[in-house]
């Protein structure tokens, strides 16, 4: 099973190839300036390195977000178009789930993607299974409502150090704080409708949120 995996949901750009569950190639840029420009050349380069042709691909795995709206759209559009045109299965994985898979631990893992003003996209996983659903929320409020015992935290820890201070948490070492595309190798389930496959933004577009508010206020 020749599998292409990609993650473009944050500033990181990560692409990996696996065959029979073995990683064949991987490239990760931690601070990619422009996924639109780099993603396809990076896929092409890795494929050339292991001498695969596109039509040999048998499965595609992609992170569906949350994260940068534009970033996720580039990844999801690329993945769904490839899967559609090559007629191969497509798997979507939460970007927060991918991050939570990075540290090797039996403790619950909280993954954070900074969404500014004390808010974050928050994942809550234990051994790759979701404990609570992914959320866009105030980190302080979310921790209060969901956390009782010790946990490991991954991702954007820095902006939330103050709120985390009163909890019993372990920070994953830098190398295990962000998932890489190769960590997608055993995650997620095949989607049954590639056409309807969409990003998980976890937030409405601002205009849409305002419009709904207007509707609700009569």
């Amino acid at each position: 099973m020749k599998q292409l995996m990609l993650d473009t949901s944050t500033t990181r750009l990560s692409v990996a190839l696996s065959e029979h569950g073995q990683i064949q190639a991987e490239a990760t840029v931690m601070v990619s300036k422009n996924h639109a420009v780099t993603l396809m050349p990076m896929i092409e380069q890795l494929m050339n390195a292991v001498k695969w042709t596109p039509t040999e691909l048998e499965r595609i795995v992609v992170t569906t977000g949350p994260g940068s709206y534009t970033g996720i759209r580039i990844g999801v559009t690329t993945a769904k178009t490839l899967a559609y045109t090559l007629q191969i299965p497509l798997i979507g994985v939460s970007a927060l789930r991918l991050m939570a898979a990075a540290p090797n631990t039996e403790l619950p893992v909280v993954s954070l993607i900074d969404a500014r003003r004390g808010n974050a996209y928050i994942g809550h996983y234990q051994q790759n299974e979701a404990v609570t659903p992914d959320r866009h929320a105030s980190v302080a409020a979310w921790l209060k409502a969901n956390i009782t015992g010790p946990f490991v935290v991954v991702g954007d820890v820095e902006p939330f150090r103050d709120v985390l201070a009163s909890y019993d948490y372990i920070e994953a070492p830098a190398a295990h704080s962000y998932g890489r595309a190769s960590d997608l190798v055993a995650l997620g389930e095949v989607t049954n409708d590639i056409h309807a496959f969409e990003p998980e933004y976890l937030r409405l577009a601002e205009a849409e949120a305002k419009w709904l508010e207007g509707q609700n206020n009569g």
Partner: peptide, 20 residues
């Protein structure tokens, strides 16, 4: 619109790459 353009471009690249 850059975000809108990028969807078409990502899809076009995927087709171009997949079928050479």
């Amino acid at each position: 619109l850059v975000g809108a353009l990028l969807v078409g471009i990502s899809a076009a690249k995927a087709l171009a790459f997949a079928h050479n």
